[in-house]
């Protein structure tokens, strides 16, 4: 099943195009890893796919309510406990399996601890556990393994693999090798924007350049 199809996609940051002419598809059970140097526009691209930012040109075709997005900020409230944080997002997204998610990310022992007392890596694990309770098929992950130790990274790779096996898909930007069998890599370098004036200006910086 096709979960995501992008065609002729251009995204801009600060009103200037960083990527253009990008096209790719993602089917159920697939993982796609975005590669490219810093500043190429991986984060911007992921935000576009998540629907937080409109693309400058091109089309993104996705199923309705398919995306679960995880970026640098995990949306964790320090005043709530780990379990409460997770339960909140489960209710908002209408998903289930909070207990299983806690187990998968090895957070069971911390469940009643206020999230403010967690370390950076533990917070990250909670943020990734949130993905599991959304019940959404397409995971859009921006540097998911930042501040994870080796054991947690392996654990996370396991979770992603289980998600793929369950008919999900993952689109991620990461610099490390997660060791997910069959994961495709997409190098964004060839799609770096040329700087030529676009046919239809999107931002102020394009309209007046």
């Amino acid at each position: 099943m096709r979960l995501l199809a992008a065609e002729g996609l251009a995204v801009s940051r600060g009103g200037l195009r960083v990527i253009e002419g990008l096209g790719f598809t993602l089917d159920a059970g697939e993982a796609l890893v975005l590669r490219g140097p810093n500043g190429i526009g991986k984060t911007t691209l992921l935000r576009c796919i998540a629907g937080l930012q409109p693309p400058a040109a091109g089309s993104i075709v996705l199923a309705e309510d398919a995306v679960a997005y995880a970026a640098h900020a995990d949306g964790i409230k320090p005043a709530l406990s780990v379990a409460e944080n997770l339960a909140f997002w489960a209710r908002v997204f209408g998903g289930t399996g909070a207990a299983a998610a806690l187990r998968a990310m090895d957070l069971e022992a911390l469940a009643d601890r206020p999230a403010g007392a967690l370390s950076a890596g533990q917070k990250r694990r909670l943020g990734l556990a949130r993905l599991m309770v959304t019940g959404r098929p397409l995971w859009v992950l921006d540097e998911p393994t930042v501040s994870l130790d080796a054991a947690s990274t392996l654990r996370f790779a396991e979770v992603v693999r289980a998600h793929l096996d369950g008919g999900g898909a993952a689109l991620m930007a990461t610099h490390i090798e997660l060791g997910i069998a069959g994961a495709r890599a997409l190098d964004l370098t060839p799609y770096r924007a040329s700087g030529a004036a676009p046919a239809r200006p999107h931002s102020f910086n394009e309209a007046f350049a």
Binding site: G14, G15, F204, E206, A209
Partner: peptide, 17 residues
């Protein structure tokens, strides 16, 4: 304003390239 935006756009392009 248009000239200011144009300057800003050129500057942004310059720093990006």
């Amino acid at each position: 304003e248009i000239r200011k935006r144009r300057l800003a756009a050129l500057l942004a392009r310059e720093t990006r390239a």
